[in-house]
C-alpha cells in the first residue's frame, strides 16, 4: 500500500516538471494551426519535426551536425589542450609564471569575438578562422582554472607526499594533478559552453557546411522550420556537451562527496 503510493509520488515528481513545456508546445501548435501565428514568423512545432525528419532522411542533417561537431571539438582540443598545458606549466613553475602569466592575463581581456574582423583579415572566412576563434575562446577558461587548481592544492598534502618519498612526477601524479582536477573540470565545463557560443557566431558569419550554413541557407529561402531546427540542434549539442562534462566529473571526482551520486 505505502510502496504503491511512494511509486505514484515518484512518478508524479518526474512528470510535473514537464507539464509546462508540454503545455507551451501544445498552445504553440494550436496557435499556428488556427492561424494566429504566421509560419513565416514561427512555424508550428510539428513542421519543425517534419523538416527534421526530411533532412535526416536525405542524410543532409547528419552531415551538417558532423561538420559542426567536428569543428567545435577540434577547436576545443587545440585551445583546451594548450590551456591545460600552459596552465600546468605556469601553475607548477614560478619561472614560467613570471615569464608568461602577465602576457596571458593581458590577452585575456580581449573578448575573442572582438577579434573577428582581424581574424577574417588574417585567415579569410574559411575553416582556419573558425578554429582559431573557438580555440581562443576555450583557451582561457581552461588555462585560468588549471592554473588556480594547481596553485590551490593543499600544501599539507604536498608536504605529506614529500615525507612519504614522493618526488617529481610521482608527486605530480598522486597529489598535485588529482588535487587540481576539480578546478580543471570546472574550466572544461565553462569552455564547452563557450565553445558552442563561438561556434554559432563563427558559423553564422560564413560557412560552406555545418549547422550554421544550414540555417543561413534556409533563411535565404524563408524556410523558418529549418532555421528553428538549426537553433534546436545547437541547443541539443550544447546540452550533450554539458552532460558529458558532468559525467566526466562524476567519474573522476567520485571520491568527492559533492559529486558522487547521492
Amino acid at each position: 500500500m505505502s510502496q504503491k503510493s511512494t511509486l505514484l509520488n515518484r512518478l508524479r515528481g518526474a512528470l510535473i516538471p514537464w507539464l509546462l513545456p508540454v503545455a507551451i508546445l501544445a498552445a504553440w501548435e494550436i496557435a499556428a494551426r488556427v492561424g494566429w501565428l504566421s509560419s513565416r514568423i514561427l512555424p508550428e512545432p510539428f513542421a519543425v519535426l517534419k523538416a527534421g525528419v526530411a533532412l535526416a532522411a536525405t542524410g543532409e542533417l547528419w552531415q551538417h551536425v558532423k561538420v559542426s561537431s567536428l569543428r567545435a571539438l577540434t577547436g576545443f582540443a587545440i585551445g583546451g589542450g594548450l590551456g591545460l598545458l600552459l596552465g600546468l606549466l605556469t601553475g607548477s613553475f614560478r619561472k614560467v609564471e613570471i615569464a608568461l602569466d602577465t602576457t596571458l592575463q593581458m590577452i585575456r581581456n580581449i573578448p575573442p569575438l572582438a577579434l573577428i574582423p582581424l581574424v577574417i583579415l588574417w585567415f579569410g572566412i574559411d575553416e582556419m578562422a573558425k578554429l582559431f576563434l573557438i580555440s581562443l575562446g576555450v583557451f582561457f577558461s581552461v588555462y585560468i582554472n588549471t592554473f588556480h587548481g594547481i596553485r590551490s592544492v593543499d600544501p599539507a598534502l604536498i608536504e605529506m607526499g614529500r615525507s612519504y618519498g614522493l618526488t617529481g612526477w610521482s608527486l605530480y601524479r598522486e597529489v598535485i594533478l588529482p588535487g587540481a582536477l576539480a578546478s580543471i573540470l570546472v574550466g572544461v565545463r565553462y569552455a564547452l559552453g563557450f565553445m558552442w557560443v563561438i561556434l554559432i557566431v563563427a558559423e553564422t558569419i560564413s560557412a560552406q557546411a555545418g549547422i550554421g550554413y544550414m540555417t543561413m541557407n534556409a533563411r535565404e529561402f524563408l524556410q523558418t522550420d529549418v532555421v528553428l531546427l538549426g537553433i534546436l540542434l545547437y541547443a541539443v549539442l550544447g546540452k550533450l556537451a554539458d552532460v558529458a562534462a558532468r559525467l566526466l566529473e562524476r567519474h573522476w571526482l567520485k571520491w568527492n562527496n559533492s559529486y558522487s551520486a547521492a
Partner: peptide, 15 residues
C-alpha cells in the same frame, strides 16, 4: 592528511 582521491588502502600504499 589522507589523499581524498585515493581509497583507504591506496592511501596506505603511498610511496
Amino acid at each position: 592528511r589522507l589523499l581524498p582521491w585515493r581509497t583507504v588502502i591506496q592511501n596506505i600504499a603511498i610511496g
